[in-house]
C-alpha cells in the first residue's frame, strides 16, 4: 500500500498543496479527530476515574472478559476455514468453484443485523431448532455460542480473502516439489505452505480479530443484551451510553480504540513483511542474474 510515489514534482504546486490539504482535512476531520476525542474524553476525569470505570464495574469486567473469549474463538474458526477454503480454491479446479468464491463474500453484503436475525430464526426459542435445543438444554441465542456464531459470520471473508491472492501468486510448484520429494499432506502444509503464507494469514487474522472485537449489529441481535452475561465490550459501550454514563462508556471505548491502534501498527508491520516477500517471490521468478562473485567455477 505504500509504494514510493513515482512523481513527486507537483507536491509543491498550488494544486498539489490544495489536494494534500483536502486529503489531510478528510482524514483529519473524519478519522483522526474522533479517534483523538475518544482518548481525551476517556481521560477527562483523570486516569483514576478511567481505571475505576473499567475495573470496578463487574458488568464491564465481564464484558471485557467475554469479548476476549468470543473474538479469539471466532477468529480461530475463521482461520481454519480461511486456510481450508483458500487451499481449496487456489489449488484445485472443480465445478462450482466460482460460485463458492462469490459465497465467501456474502457476509460483506449482508447487514450484520440481518445475519443476527437469521441466527435467531434458526436457534432462537421460536426458531427452527428452538425446540430441539430446549430439549437438549443448550442455549445458543442470548448466550455465548450465539455470539461466536454471529461474530464468525461477519468475519468469515476476512482470512480467506487475504489468503487466496497470495496463494495464487505463490503457485503450487513448491508444494508439488515437496510431494515429489515424498512429503505427505500435513508435511506439505506445515513445512511448505504455512511458512509461505504466514504473513498473509497473520494479516487476515489481525483484521478478523479487529472486526470480531468490534462487531456490534449481529452480536446485538443474538445477545439479548444482558448485562453481566451476554454484553461484549461494544455492547457495553452502548449500554453505558444509554444509561447516560458517558465517561464510563468512553473508558470502554478507549480500550477498544487502543486495540484498534495496536491493530493498525501490527497491520503496517505485516504489510511491510508481505511486500518484502512478494518482492522476493518476484526476484525468484526472474531470470537468474549470475553476477554473484561466489558462483565459482564448475570445473571437474
Amino acid at each position: 500500500m505504500t509504494s514510493k510515489p513515482r512523481h513527486a514534482a507537483t507536491a509543491t504546486s498550488p494544486l498539489g498543496l490544495l489536494l494534500i490539504t483536502g486529503a489531510v482535512a478528510t482524514v483529519g476531520l473524519l478519522i483522526v479527530a474522533p479517534l483523538a476525542s475518544v482518548f481525551v474524553d476517556a481521560f477527562s476525569n483523570g486516569p483514576q476515574a478511567w481505571w475505576e470505570a473499567l475495573a470496578h464495574d463487574p458488568d464491564t469486567r465481564h464484558a471485557i472478559w467475554l469479548s476476549l473469549t468470543v473474538a479469539p474463538i471466532a477468529v480461530l474458526i475463521n482461520t481454519i476455514f480461511g486456510v481450508a477454503a483458500a487451499w481449496l480454491v487456489a489449488r484445485f479446479r472443480f465445478p462450482g468453484r466460482s460460485l463458492l468464491v462469490s459465497l465467501f463474500d456474502v457476509p460483506f453484503s449482508v447487514s450484520p443485523v440481518v445475519a443476527g436475525l437469521a441466527l435467531v430464526l434458526i436457534f432462537g426459542r421460536q426458531g427452527l431448532l428452538g425446540p430441539t435445543l430446549a430439549w437438549l438444554a443448550v442455549k445458543v441465542i442470548f448466550a455465548w455460542p450465539g455470539l461466536v456464531l454471529a461474530t464468525t459470520f461477519v468475519t468469515l471473508p476476512l482470512v480467506v480473502r487475504e489468503l487466496i491472492p497470495v496463494m495464487e501468486a505463490i503457485g503450487p510448484e513448491e508444494e508439488m516439489a515437496a510431494v515429489s520429494l515424498g512429503a505427505n499432506g500435513w508435511q506439505v502444509f506445515w513445512r511448505v505452505t504455512l511458512p509461505n503464507i504466514r504473513w498473509a494469514l497473520l494479516h487476515g487474522v489481525v483484521l478478523a480479530n479487529a472486526r470480531a472485537m468490534g462487531e456490534f449489529g449481529a452480536v446485538y441481535v443474538v445477545s439479548g443484551h444482558i448485562a453481566g452475561a451476554t454484553d461484549t465490550m461494544p455492547l457495553r459501550v452502548e449500554k453505558l451510553f444509554q444509561e447516560y454514563r458517558t465517561p464510563a462508556s468512553m473508558a470502554v471505548a478507549s480500550v477498544l480504540a487502543a486495540l484498534a491502534l495496536l491493530t493498525l501498527v501490527a497491520k503496517v508491520f505485516i504489510e511491510r513483511q508481505l511486500e518484502t516477500e512478494s518482492k522476493e517471490l518476484e526476484a525468484a521468478r526472474a531470470p537468474g542474474a549470475d553476477t554473484d562473485p561466489t558462483t565459482g567455477g564448475l570445473g571437474p
Binding site: E173, E174, M176, A177, A178, V179, S180, G182, A183, N184, R191, V192, P195, N196, E277, E280, L281, A284, R285
Partner: peptide
Amino acid sequence: RHARQREVGFVFQHYALFRHM
C-alpha cells in the same frame, strides 16, 4: 503410483525452491 512414492528426482523449471528454508 502417487508422486510421493515414485522416488523421482524432479527439477522444476523455476526450481521451486522452498523460499523460507
